[in-house]
Structures are given as C-alpha cells and as structure tokens.
Design a protein around this nucleic acid. Structure first.
Length: 578
DNA sequence: GTAGGGTTAG
C-alpha cells in the first residue's frame, strides 16, 4: 500500500486524492518518521490539495512529537516546557491553513494529540487534553476514552486510567484490553486476573491481546491454574499461531518450572523471535540448568540471531546461577566486542554476582571500580550479597556504605548486613544496624506467603496462628523439624544447620514453612505445591525446605520477589551450586 | 482514517 501510494505521488500518474495523501501521512506518523510527515504535508499544500479533518491528526501528532508548536494554547504550553522554538515553516503553514479553515477540536483531533503524551513527562499536557475533551463533551466517546486510558497507563498513572475505565459507559474489547494490559505492564497482576474474570462475566470475549496480558500476570503470580485455562482457550479459539501469545505461553511455563512443556511449545513455533529465545533461555537459567541455557544461546547465535541487552542480562544470570563463571565472563567480554552493546549497570550487577558467588570478591570489587557507567544500588547490592555467602564482614561494610548512599530506604540491604553480622556472631554490629533502621524510621514490611488451593488463597504470616488448620499445621511442622534434625545429624550437615537451629520453634516459624506445611496437609502426593512469597524467600529456610522435599518425597516451588526456587528430592534447582 | 500485545538481574 505504502509503496503504491509513494509511487502514485512521485509519478503523478493521477493527481493524488486527499485519501492518498492522508494514508501516507498516517504511515509516516505511525512509523515515527515525523519530519517526513511534515515534509509530505508541505508538498501536499504546494500541490494545491487542501488538508481536511483526517489530515490534522497526523500533522499535529508529528508536530507534537517534534516539540513544535501546533494548535494555539493547547500545545503552546508544551513548547514553553521543552524550550523548543516553533519551526517557522510549521508555524507559517499552520497559520495560513488555519486562516482558510476553521479548526474545530473534535474526536479525531484529540486522537491525534493524545498519543503525543504517551510518556510520564507529558502527563500534565495529557491531563489538559483530558479536561479539553470533558469541555467539549467527548470524554465518554469510546475511542477518546480508550486513548485517554492508554495515555494514563503509559504515564504510569494506573489509578487515573482506572477512573477513565470506570466512567466509560460502553466498554468495548479494546477498553478491557487497554486496562488489562495497563495493569499487567505496571505490575498489578492480581488486578489483571480480577478484571479478566469480570470481563468474561459481562460477556466480552477475550482476544489474543487480552490473553497476553493475563498470561504475563499468571507468570508473575505463579497462577498455574489460570494459565492452563488460558492455554485451553488459545487452542479452542485457534489463536495458536499468534507469536506474541506463544511467547507469553513459553514464558509462563518456563518460569513456572515446566520446562518440558515450555520447550515443546518453543520448538513448535514457526517464528522464533529474540523474545522467544529470551523466554526459554531464561527459564533454563532460572531453574539451574545453566548448561542448557548456554547450549540454546549458542544455537541461537548459530542461527544468525543477534542478542540484545536483555538477553545478555538473562544469559549472564543463567551462568551465575549454575556456577559457569568463566563462561559468563567470556559472554560479558563479547557483548561490546562482537555485538557493539555497551554494558549497562544491570550487566555489571550480573557480573559482580557471577564473580561474587564464585568467591572472587576482589575481582568483583575491582570490576566495580573500573566501571565506565556509575554503579547503581544493584551493583553494590550484588557485592553485599556475595559477602553474605562468603562471610566477608569487612568488604560487606564497604558495600553497604555505598549501597545505602544510593538506596537509603531499601530495607533489604539493612537486613542483609544484619544477617552478615549475625553469622559472624557480631552482636554489636546487629545492634548498630537495628539502631540505624530505627533512626531512619525504616520498618521491614511483614513477610507473608500464600498458597492457592481449590480456588481460595490461604495466606500465612510468620508465627501465624489464625488459620483454621493451625493445630494440624504446627503438628506437621514439628514432625518435619524433628525429621530434618535427624537427617542433618546422620549426614553430617549439622554445621550448615547450626545457624538454623534457633529458627526452629514457634517464635521463628517463617511464613513459607507454614505455607508448605499447609500444602503437604491438603494435597496428594504427585500434586505440585506452589507458594508465593511477597519478599525474598528466607535463606535460612532454604536448607530446611530442601530436606523436607527429600523427607516428604514431594515437589514444591517457592516463588519469591525475585525468582523461583524449585525444591525436589532434596535439591533446589536455584543457586544450588554453592 | 481511532484506541490494546511478548523478554531482563539483585
């Protein structure tokens, strides 16, 4: 179409109609070729073709994107804000054009203007466009409403978006999708699932776009049940060839630990994009199969696909979790050398983690000092974490000092340092950290864990006794604890358990332990137990849960704020190498 | 002729 239009205009075989001009303008605006759009607009005027109501949105959008002044007062504010002087051509051509036609702001104009505000810095301008649409009584128009809703989502104002959503009298598929994707992209996974249920109840049929948002939220929540329902729907509706949807499905299964299923979907895909590869490689890496992740990565390179920055984060972390230190360092070196990708802070934090887990703390510290970009909190945080593993109090103090300069309110780092002191039996240090937290009025958010069982969510806090099965749960825990102790003594791993001894007992019952005990009580062998934890899963529970999986011969997953921990037969597929 | 989509560490 585009080629045809260009050819028609260039050869002037027939005088282009306004529709042809507008189609080409729209193409340019869509591809963000804004100055091309403005040039085309100039040619259009020169050729004697008058712009009409369909012309304005694309010209206005292009002008707005280029920060040029367009329609009077509305965008004048924008120009002042960015400090861009209006380009003389745009100004003169617009003024002359306006003189000839009365520009009335209608829904089409708004639809051209609002997408110019799809970024948090333009939120104020977007709000004024919202006011403008209310003034002319168009805010309830479904296209304008959808557009405003999306604008708020892209600006990160989910609550405003929801307000627009609630006020819209006619909610079409696109309205539901915009809200569902909006929640999904901003991390409100439970709200996505609520809205999805509501949508089906009012009789709107989900399409692939809906399901992508829903699947992404299932992945974050570990909501396997909904995920499987979505998969059935995909088959039923014949959406199986949609690459976006298939990527989401691969990602969901990969992250939930069902790598066989993830791989089979991945293999069956006709088009495998970089995102598909990232999903499957990340899945293997996350579950401790670093060798397989590396193998797939090499396969991808051989297939002629170029990795991007995201994939490098994924592969570096895969190497880190499987102890493939040197392989990871090689990849880090090729990033810039072979692919021209400048490593960012996120890559450095992976490499610090890589070196740190391997005990190469000195090199990790040197790497940070050699960084061209300013290290962020995550980089020093990775070093601090390594100090916890390898019990280096001195370096930990330095890393803590740096990380706290950058993220003074991040409680996780205070807890980490406190645990490092506690491991070193340095009670003075523990006290120091606690005082610091009190002075800064920082309080640790209470950790909780929950299990989804028969459509209900069972939530537990540390030491919780409110659940109706409390007695049985505690009995089960006491039994497990005594079996764990026996196993430790007979296998001579009591040393590792030493730090954990004080955790056993009612005062130190972690929420994930309660959730697992609940799961063991209520599910049959062979059924998977998935526990979700709001914060990071407790390191001290790790060994306990591994041993429980052996004793009870059961498989379970603890999904915490950062990753999946897959426990099976006494092994955790996550960070098990050390 | 308008609005909605997948991947990333700690």
């Amino acid at each position: 179409m585009t080629v045809h239009v260009q050819a028609a205009i260039a050869k002037s075989l027939a005088p282009p109609t306004s529709t042809l001009w507008n189609t080409q303008l729209r193409e340019f605006a869509k591809q963000c070729l804004f100055s091309d759009a403005l040039h085309l607009y100039r040619r259009m005027l020169r050729s004697g073709q008058s712009p009409n109501v369909f012309t304005f949105p694309f010209v206005l959008k292009s002008s707005a994107a280029l920060s040029f002044s367009v329609t009077g007062a509305l965008l004048h504010g924008h120009v002042l804000k960015t400090g861009c002087e209006p380009e003389p051509f745009v100004q003169t051509s617009l003024i002359s054009m306006m003189r000839e036609e009365v520009v009335s702001v209608n829904s089409v104009t708004l639809l051209g203007l609002i997408p110019g505000c799809f970024s948090p810095v333009d939120l104020d301008l977007g709000k004024s466009l919202h006011c403008c649409s209310i003034k002319i009584g168009l805010e309830l128009d479904s296209s304008v409403g959808n557009c405003l809703l999306t604008m708020y989502v892209k600006c990160g104002s989910v609550e405003y978006a929801r307000k627009v959503f609630d006020e819209m009298p006619e909610k079409g598929l696109i309205t539901w999708n915009a809200m569902i994707s909006g929640y999904s992209q901003n991390g409100f996974a439970t709200r996505v699932l609520d809205l999805y249920r509501e949508m089906k109840l009012v009789g709107v049929s989900p399409d692939p776009v809906t399901l992508v948002g829903v699947l992404s939220s299932c992945t974050h929540l570990g909501a396997h049940g909904v995920g499987r329902e979505v998969e059935q729907r995909i088959e039923l509706c014949g959406f199986g060839s949609n690459p976006f949807l298939m990527n989401s499905l691969v990602n969901m299964y990969a992250r939930c630990g069902n790598l066989v299923k993830a791989h089979s979907i991945f293999s069956s895909m006709k088009e495998r994009s970089l995102v598909s590869w990232t999903a499957i490689i990340g899945g293997y890496g996350m579950h401790g199969h670093g060798e397989l992740a590396v193998k797939l990565f090499e396969e991808m390179i051989k297939a002629g696909i170029k990795p991007d920055k995201t994939l490098f984060v994924t592969i570096l972390s895969a190497c880190s979790h499987s102890g493939l230190t040197d392989r990871g360092l090689e990849y880090f070196a090729t990033m810039e050398r072979s692919y021209g990708l400048q490593p960012g802070s996120e890559h450095y934090s992976c490499v610090v983690d890589l070196l740190g887990r391997a005990g190469r703390l000195k090199e990790a510290e040197e790497l940070i000092r050699s960084m061209k970009v300013k290290p962020d909190g995550a980089v020093w945080g990775a070093l601090l974490n390594a100090c916890k593993i390898h019990k280096n109090v001195k370096l930990a103090e330095l890393a803590f000092e740096r990380v706290i300069e950058l993220e003074p309110a991040n409680i996780g780092y205070y807890v980490l340092l406190s645990n490092i002191y506690s491991d070193a039996e340095n009670s003075e240090g523990v006290l120091k950290v606690r005082t610091m937290m009190r002075e800064r009025k920082l309080r640790k958010e209470p950790g909780y864990s929950y299990v989804e069982f028969k459509g209900e969510v069972h939530i537990f806090l540390a030491g919780d006794r409110t659940h109706q099965q409390t007695d049985d749960i505690y009995r089960m825990l006491a039994e497990l604890e005594s079996l764990v102790r026996k196993l430790c003594e007979s296998n001579g791993i009591g040393g590792k358990m030493k730090n954990e001894q004080h955790l056993i007992g009612e005062n130190n019952v972690h929420s994930e332990k309660l959730a697992i005990a609940f799961g063991l009580l209520n599910t049959r062998p062979g059924m998977e137990i998935i526990v979700i934890k709001n914060l990071r899963a407790c390191d001290d529970c790790h060994l306990f849960l591994k041993l429980v999986s052996k004793i009870a011969d059961r498989e379970f997953i603890v999904r915490d704020a950062t990753r999946f921990h897959h426990f099976k037969d006494g092994v955790c597929s996550c960070r098990d190498y050390w």
